[in-house]
Design a protein around this nucleic acid. Sequence first.
DNA 1: CGCGCACATGACAACGTTGTCCAGGCTCTA
DNA 2: TAGAGCCTGGACAACGTTGTCATGTGCGCG
Lengths: 349, 349
Amino acid sequence: MPETARRTDRFSGTRYGNRPTMKDVAARAGVGLKTVSRVVNGEPGVTPETERRVQEAIDALGFRRNDSARVLRKGRTASIGLVLEDLADPFYGPLSRAVEEVARAHGALLINGSSAEDPDREQELALALCARRVDGLVIIPAGDDHRYLEPEVKAGVATVFVDRPAGRIDADVVLSDNFGGARSGVAHLIAHGHRRIGFIGDMPRIHTAAERLRGYRAAMEDAGIPVEDSWMSLGVTDPERVRRAAEDMLTGPAPVTAIFAGNNRVTVTVVRVLAEQSRRVAFVGFDDIELADLLQPGVTVVAQDAAALGRTAAERLFRQLDGELIAPERIELPTRLITRGSGELPPAD
Amino acid sequence: MPETARRTDRFSGTRYGNRPTMKDVAARAGVGLKTVSRVVNGEPGVTPETERRVQEAIDALGFRRNDSARVLRKGRTASIGLVLEDLADPFYGPLSRAVEEVARAHGALLINGSSAEDPDREQELALALCARRVDGLVIIPAGDDHRYLEPEVKAGVATVFVDRPAGRIDADVVLSDNFGGARSGVAHLIAHGHRRIGFIGDMPRIHTAAERLRGYRAAMEDAGIPVEDSWMSLGVTDPERVRRAAEDMLTGPAPVTAIFAGNNRVTVTVVRVLAEQSRRVAFVGFDDIELADLLQPGVTVVAQDAAALGRTAAERLFRQLDGELIAPERIELPTRLITRGSGELPPAD
DNA sequence: CGCGCACATGACAACGTTGTCCAGGCTCTA
DNA sequence: TAGAGCCTGGACAACGTTGTCATGTGCGCG
């Protein structure tokens, strides 16, 4: 296909298909190319009369500056990338929104994508964003080896990891206190008399899941309670299997009297299972969920502040971009135990 | 500042600051620029031996193709823009995710931003995305005049509106059946014996809100019930004022025996208020909410399929981009009444 | 043995913008 | 009134990539 046919588009008749350029605007306004550039960018050195003529041509032609060319020339894109696990997860909504707000305050756009917890997809996405020359990256890691980002970081791409630490690379990280949060949640159950406490969480290869498991173990150990394997379910998140795991813990010779859930998705399923039980089983979940206060009993949770995670990470990112030469740091945000009833039930055995 | 100093960055020591280009790779591999381009793009006509040498240079230098330059040359960005109202709203999470999935299937990235229900911000965002030369736009309109997009559409930017119709421009629109859904929800309450039914919704300038209000009125009229002004609250969404509106309807000489909520945010607040009442008040809400089945009573809702909205819109967008010459169309997706208890309560007066 | 042909490779222009630099016209002052 | 200085505006190169086209090499076949 000849080069000149490239721009033909699917439209017929009056549709243009070719966008006007500064050159076109300049021709129409009867001025030089650079003068148009000056007007578009609000640079000084143009008489009001010239500016008016240029502006008129811009409006008439429907000119819009081509930022690709601008980026190519200037080196900065004024956009940042966000790689997260799942846009549809209610936990990440406020986080992305917070990142977006900070980006907006700095005049940057947000490009984002979901890794679906797949390390390859995370890498593919992150590198695609780098190819677009985003100024910075906020990453919620799916994988545990981020050496593939080394050339990017060296080339000046600001990078901050959120929610989970980076693997094999020295970078800023913003985390919740998963260990401490889980520990205090489980300790809360213990303080209310429980000893046989179940734990249902995600795969321990996910850092947050591992930390929360560690918190569970620590609380149990603090209280001198040996943990039985049958009390723990690791690596299940789909509703069906979580349901079965919960039911298993609640039956048998020495059933648990309380359950600690490792994340919001597990929580909603376990809460459903517990609602079906005749026996009252205590419950504490990691991550807050909507309407938790309206259930009977209210759902006690260890809440993390997703928006604060996103905001902190993004601010850190722009501090890197603003040239504040800061050594990579690990920032840990506190969690908050919210008691609503389910975690204060006494053991029923 | 001299042009050559432009690339100095905040890093010291071994940091590079300059990204290698194809030229650098070519020099290192001892081949021509175009050969590198061929290897990077997997074009034929390169001997395995040459390809190996080039690949080696690429890895050694940490080269990553600059997509800005590529876009400038090729005209297509392989990215689409999504302008929505609030990323943090649980309704839009699945919608964005669906758009993203379709984009991914077509090899495109997603750039998105929240308009925060502000028409100016919507326009600013949409135009910024156009300046980046996104191939297409999915817009959840905040404003009601989209003529500002005319030059873009003419220039070939595929455009689809979702959730609410476009204003003053002829374009594809994907909507839920807001009118029919609300009408059936209210009819459901009427069928259970209610006559004094309250409606709490968003500002009628928002299309979805207006349609749902219209559905409410239609259902009431179908049943021959004159609507009292005091039964309707329009334009309030913040929890405090929704709470007051609901409480007002429930007091006075002829209190409502049922409430219909116009969206998910109103629903969560009204459900809270109703939980505090001694009297049982029937309730139906527009939009499904998580854990609605676990509340006492379960929350009856008119559910729309957010993911389907996003998927349909995105698919439509790519059909435009794939050159299927299709006249703008209005697609309406059905809603579904999910009965869980709250909508089946009899009037208590 | 020579001709043409296929194939690998590279030189070069172009994409649309911005930074640099220079020209021309103006004002102000000596 | 001439020279200095300022202000406006334009010519031109460069950003990194890809499409086009030309070149060179080696091979098969008549």
